[in-house]
Design a protein around this nucleic acid. Structure first.
Lengths: 179, 179
DNA sequence: ACCTGAACACCGTTCAAGT
DNA sequence: ACCTGAACACCGTTCAAGT
């Protein structure tokens, strides 16, 4: 009956993400996370020895890594589809945005950047042009979602603002400039 | 001799900014800020009744608001100059980036956005095109600086990376897409 | 009006102890 | 191996008190 599921790293990460999505990053504390897991906070340290720092790294890795999926089609269309999916994922976990945008975490965005770069390379750009293009696109994407998240939560924007339309319009301009 | 300067809101903000620039946002606490001001932490509440929340809002306002300066010249050149100056300011206070990017603070970026939008309007864009253009440019700018700040602090990038060059290359592509 | 001191309810984390 | 309980050094903030 009271045979609880054993604590695992994955269950900790998932529960933390759920807590952030529901209550915001500010309310993620080791003690509250412990409560959600029906365990003392200190038990978490057995699975994440570096404590909260390590927990946050894991959360970033879980949300920020989304390479362009392999497949066919025109590069521009694939980029557009990927950008939309990436934005959806980020908006689905806005509470993690502060971490993704600001914490030094080499690697978290690396696989994503590399995959975009390869696609641009395949589209005929030189290595240098593809590097600039990938960086530009990812910059726009992260900045756009950050601004959008701010505006959405502030609730100060006009009711009829077409978020998707604005995102896509900006995306098209960036893509036009890159390739 | 021990006649201290009286505490003012401005002195509090400046000292807080200095503390963040030197030690990072994580080390900004009311108690430490009080120490830097040679005052008990509780004295700060007399000038900022809403406490740390209000302090952070003030910091955002102080760093994030930088409209395009009035003046002549080709719109594209003015935008380029403004973007460079804005990036410099943000990089000069990287510790505040997490706040700018994530905290809902209507108005902090508003004057900046509006001024960019007006310049694009003056350059011949329609109202709608100018709105999209301003949002796209600001998204790129904030995202780029955030990524750059991450990479710089991680110290994992090649030594010969030309930060300015990459920023300007991306900026040109965005500007090309907008106008 | 402006600042202090003590207090409260929280944090993250360590460490010895339990099973 | 895995988890608990007590403890430590911090937080932000309130509130009565001093000047």
């Amino acid at each position: 009956m009271s045979q609880r599921e054993p604590l695992t790293r994955e269950r900790i990460i998932e529960t933390a993400l759920h807590l952030i999505d529901g209550q915001g990053l500010g309310r993620l504390t080791m003690r509250r996370l412990g409560d959600s897991l029906e365990v003392e906070a200190m038990a978490i340290y057995h699975h994440l020895p570096h404590g909260k720092e390590q927990l946050l790294e894991q959360l970033i890795a879980h949300v920020a890594a989304l390479p362009v999926p392999p497949g066919g089609g025109a590069p521009r269309d694939r980029l557009r589809a990927w950008a939309g999916a990436y934005r959806d994922r980020l908006l689905g976990h806005v509470g993690v945005m502060p971490l993704i945008v600001t914490r030094r975490n080499p690697g978290a965005l690396l696989s994503t950047t590399v995959s975009v770069q390869e696609l641009l390379r395949a589209a005929g750009l030189s290595e240098a042009e593809a590097a600039v293009g990938a960086h530009t696109l990812l910059s726009y994407l992260l900045g756009e979602v950050a601004l959008e998240a701010r505006e959405r939560s502030a609730g100060t924007s006009p009711d009829d603002l077409d978020w998707d339309g604005r995102f896509l319009a900006g995306l098209d301009r960036v893509l036009a400039g890159i390739a």
